[in-house]
Every structure is written in structure tokens, then in C-alpha cells.
Nucleic acid binder design. Structure first.
Length: 492
RNA sequence: CGGGAGGUAGUUCAGCCCGGUAGAAUACAUGGUUUGGGACCAUGGGGUCGCAGGUUCGAAUCCUGUCCUCCCGACCA
């Protein structure tokens, strides 16, 4: 069967690819490293986007849109940011094609149409946005400026993977400006909390909130806060970042404001983003060898109803019952589909919707009509039971909530059992090799140690957890004094 | 960007070594029987063999280039 999914134990990477492709989320395209997000995958993204957008607006932000292109001179203004992204930028150098005289029907770049100044296709929008903010901010009365943009960005990655790392991806980027450092840090932390809230409560994926070390910090940031999630293969995935940018961009773009005492100062900045990469996290964290498992809150379809019948007459009887149920479920705000396609038989549909991760399936046949029951099946546990049609809509609404919680609990249990405290280098290495997951270990605080560990084990410091206690210890690698444990892991 | 594998029907693949004008399964269409875990029978449509050159009487098959994908590695705010 062409729809079969490679098992996790056979080939984890292939399993992931199978889920994305066969689950109907995305497809490869003719463009290197760029994917087509299919309707089912995009619907998932829309649900995520809508929930996040509401949270951004509830915390006082508004949406705007800035250009796709950044003039090179603006891009290079903030030196560290420019350097960090330089190696993966697509650059527009010409603005016109012409017919190729040496080849019929072919086009060539018109050498006469070379741009005076190259345009960088945004890998992130700090530069173009801060160049704009310069014109918008004069006084403390103009602050804070709290803007978000939903956009696509391009990063010319060497090796791409569907959703996890594509050359073009969709994301949101918030860019805020504040009068004080304190306020900007508060904004940075607030948005980190919004991300954690979203990922945990909507995506059912537990995360660890923390701060990045200097090595892992966003280019141009003073501090990078992050949420880190754990995938089923024991590798960590950065699910979102929120940066305190200090006055770096204000200096680079000369954005000053007058405070109440008429004193000029540079404004304080933050930026924060999550991307379609979250879909990759979702797929890898929850799904099984039968296909996707999607949390009800963001699943494009929450309930699918499959009729089981012999002949038109039975079908008509079932239709009547189902129409009523669909109406009730829709009234309760449930995303429901009645699949009465006659081409596919029930067994085929069961397998198909399991692959697509629809949380709840209702099957309804003549036997059920006689007994006033339906067969109710949940995707996460694959449990099936025959239940009464009375009070069914409420029951389904409750079941959806139960599934949402169960998926979260399962991921949480896995994550918690994969945070291992180690005290020696041997333990550190063997834990990474044999068990995976997060390794909590003392670190001497130096980049050299961090680099050396990465070199030897491929593990990086995912974060210094926000609630980290200060304790005295010795660095697991260097043996030097250390003040706290940090979380290491191999990561996507 | 380095190493490996691959691109042939909508999909998964065989054919390639040894050149002779393309096949299976599945999907699709039609008709019939079916329908409580990926149904069956019959008939039918569908492919410039990734693209571009070259060798040859003749290329899916040999040669060169190029694009795309997958896996491993390097890189990855």
C-alpha cells in the first residue's frame, strides 16, 4: 500500500517525512528547499496563527506589514545582526529579464538592468523595521510601539527539512520599542510567556523556558529567551524565541526619543518570533506509527463522521441522524466533517483519518440506529466504545478537551522522564548516547567549554532555565567551579 | 558545501548492467456486486522515461552537463 508509514524505530527521519507528506500537510516543490503547504497543513497553520494573533492583540500589539526587500546598506547597519545572517541571504541584483538571443524561447537576466544597490530578501526584519521606526519615534509619548507582522522570510539553508528548516518559511515577528530597559525586558518575558502558554495549551506541548548562552544568542540581541521542547527521538527543538535587543538597533538606526525631562536617549527594543517550524514540532512530538496525532484545539478537523450502510435506503436513514448531529456539533463550535463519500469503504476512511490525525471519529451504522448508539473512537489512544446518541454533542465536546489534556500529559511525562541530572562526564556522554533528552549538568560558564562539548557530543546548551536555582558545583567537562546547572541536548 | 542514494503513469516501483521504441501494483473512469478496520470482478483512459546536449541506423538504457529530492556530515539567529 502506497500510504504506509515508515515506523519510528525503522527510520525516524523517514517517519517524519511520511507523516508530513502522507498526512497531507505539505509537499516538495520545484524550488530548492521550499515547500508547498497544502490546504490541510495550511488550515492547521491558520488555527495556530489565529490563536497567537488573538494573544498578541490581547497584550496590546497591532499588526502591520513591512517590505520583503531590505536595501543592503540598511541590512548591514547593525553589524552583528548582519554578520549573523550574511551567509544565508538571498540577494536581488537585477530587476529585468530579456529574451535570450542565443536560445529560442529562453529568457536571460538583462545585464543592463543591474540594481544600483542590491536588495536583500529579508531573513528577519529588524533592519527595515528599525529604519522605519526612526521616523515614527520622537518622544516618550510615541512609546511603547508594539507591532507584529505576519510574513514570510528567506534563509538560504544548506540542508532543508519540511517545516523544520525550509529556505522560505512563514512566521510572525514582533518588534517593539520602549522608553526603558526594564520595560523592554518585561515585554521580552511577557512574550516568552505568551509563547509558552500557546505551545503548552494549544499545541499540547510542554516547554522549558530559559535564556540562551552567548553562543546561541540571536545576532544583535543582548539576551535571547527561548522555549525548548523535546521530540520523541530525544532531540530538543527550539520552539520560539524572544529577544531583548537593548539599544543595539536604536543605535544602529539612530532611533532617539525625548523623555519627560527633555533628555535624548536611544530607545530599547525587543523582537520575538515563532514560525511554521512549530508544525514540525507538533508532528514529531505527538504522532505515532499510524500517522499524525493533532491536539483538538488546533486540528483542522476535530470530528469526522463515517456512515456504515448497505444500499441507498440505509444511507438515507443514517443521513438524517447525522445531519442532526452535525448541526448540534457545529452549534457547539466543533469542526466536524461528515464523510459520506461512497467511493471509499469505512475501513479505508478509518485508516485515512487516523493518518491525518483527526482527534475523534464517530461511526454510525444500522446497528447503531436500532440501538440509538454510535461508535466513538479517539485517535490518541485508539480506544473505541459504543455510546448512546443521547447527549452525544456534549460528550464529544468533553472528549475533545480530555484528548487535548491527555496528549499534553503524555508529552509531559515523556519530557520529564528525559531530563537527566548528571555529575560526571561519563554519565553525561552515556546519557546522551543511550537515552537522549535534556541533560542537566554543571557548566563553568565559558564559551570554550560549550564549544568543546558540542564538538565531542553534538550537544549544545539549549537554555539556562528561568527558574534555575544557584548552587555550587563543578563543571561536568572542565572540572572548574560552576554556579548552576544548565540544560544540554542534541537539537534540531 | 563534502560523501552516498535516487528521479520512469496521479502514487510506489520494475526495466538500465547487456541499446531495438515502456511494464506492474495501486489510484482514476464506466458497469456490476459490495460496505462494522485500507473490498472484488470486468472494461477503459493515462507516461515527450527530470531537463539539455552528445554517441548511434536506433537511447529510459551509454557519455557529458544541469536541476530537483532523500540519507549522513559541515553549517544553522
Amino acid at each position: 500500500m502506497s500510504k504506509e508509514i515508515t515506523s519510528r524505530s525503522t527510520d525516524y527521519s523517514q517517519w517524519y517525512n511520511d507523516l508530513v507528506i502522507k498526512g497531507g500537510l505539505a509537499d516538495y516543490s520545484a524550488v530548492r528547499g521550499c515547500m508547498v503547504i497544502k490546504p490541510y497543513g495550511f488550515s492547521l497553520w491558520e488555527n495556530m496563527r489565529d490563536a497567537l494573533d488573538k494573544m498578541f492583540k490581547d497584550t496590546g500589539h497591532v499588526n502591520a506589514y513591512f517590505p520583503l526587500f531590505v536595501p543592503k546598506s540598511l541590512f548591514e547597519a547593525e553589524e552583528k545582526n548582519a554578520e549573523g545572517f550574511a551567509k544565508e541571504c538571498a540577494v536581488v541584483t537585477h530587476y529585468r529579464l530579456k529574451t535570450d538571443p542565443s536560445k529560442k524561447g529562453a529568457l536571460m537576466v538583462d545585464p543592463e538592468a543591474k540594481l544600483e544597490e542590491e536588495l536583500v530578501v529579508r531573513p528577519t526584519s529588524e533592519a527595515i523595521i528599525w529604519n522605519t521606526y526612526k521616523n515614527w519615534i520622537q518622544s516618550y509619548r510615541d512609546l511603547p510601539l508594539l507591532i507584529n507582522q505576519w510574513a514570510n522570510v528567506v534563509r538560504w539553508e544548506m540542508r532543508t527539512r519540511l517545516f523544520l528548516r525550509t529556505a522560505e518559511f512563514l512566521w510572525q515577528e514582533g518588534h517593539t520599542a520602549h522608553a526603558t530597559a526594564k520595560e523592554a525586558v518585561e515585554e521580552t518575558v511577557q512574550m516568552l510567556n505568551v509563547y509558552a502558554d500557546f505551545v503548552e495549551n494549544w499545541m499540547a506541548l510542554p516547554v522549558i523556558k530559559g535564556v540562551k548562552t552567548e553562543n546561541e544568542r540571536f545576532a544583535g540581541a543582548v539576551d535571547t529567551y527561548c522555549i525548548e521542547a523535546l521530540m520523541q527521538d530525544g532531540k530538543a527543538l527550539q520552539a520560539g524565541t524572544s529577544h531583548f535587543l537593548g539599544q543595539n538597533f536604536a543605535r544602529a538606526f539612530d532611533v532617539k526619543f525625548s523623555d519627560k525631562e527633555n533628555k535624548l536617549d536611544y530607545v530599547w527594543a525587543t523582537s520575538w518570533g515563532v514560525s511554521t517550524r512549530l508544525i514540525g514540532a507538533l508532528v514529531m512530538a505527538h504522532s505515532d506509527d499510524q500517522g499524525l496525532i493533532l491536539p483538538p484545539k488546533i486540528a483542522p478537523l476535530q470530528v469526522v463522521i463515517v456512515p456504515i450502510y448497505k444500499g441507498e435506503e440505509q444511507k438515507a436513514q443514517i443521513d438524517v441522524k447525522v445531519q442532526e448531529l452535525v448541526k448540534q456539533l457545529k452549534a457547539a463550535g466543533v469542526r466536524v466533517k461528515y464523510d459520506d463519500n461512497d467511493n471509499a469503504r469505512p475501513g479505508w476512511k478509518f485508516a485515512e483519518y487516523e493518518m491525518k490525525g483527526v482527534p475523534v471519529r464517530v461511526a454510525l451504522g444500522l446497528r447503531d440506529l436500532e440501538n440509538n448508539t454510535v461508535e466513538l473512537a479517539r485517535r490518541d489512544t485508539k480506544e473505541k466504545q459504543s455510546v448512546s446518541m443521547d447527549g452525544l454533542p456534549e460528550r464529544i465536546v468533553n472528549l475533545l478537551a480530555e484528548i487535548q489534556q491527555a496528549i499534553y500529559n503524555k508529552a509531559l511525562a515523556y519530557r520529564d522522564s528525559h531530563i537527566t541530572r548528571v555529575n560526571t562526564w561519563d554519565e553525561f556522554v552515556s546519557t546522551l548516547n543511550e537515552k537522549g533528552g535534556f541533560v542537566s549538568a554543571f557548566w563553568d560558564g565559558t564559551s570554550e567549554t560549550e564549544d568543546a562539548i558540542k564538538d565531542k557530543t553534538k550537544a549544545t546548551i539549549r537554555c539556562i532555565p528561568l527558574d534555575n536555582p544557584e548552587e555550587d558545583g563543578v563543571c561536568v567537562f572542565s572540572g572548574k567551579p560552576a554556579k548552576q546547572r544548565v540544560l544540554f541536548a542534541q537539537a534540531y
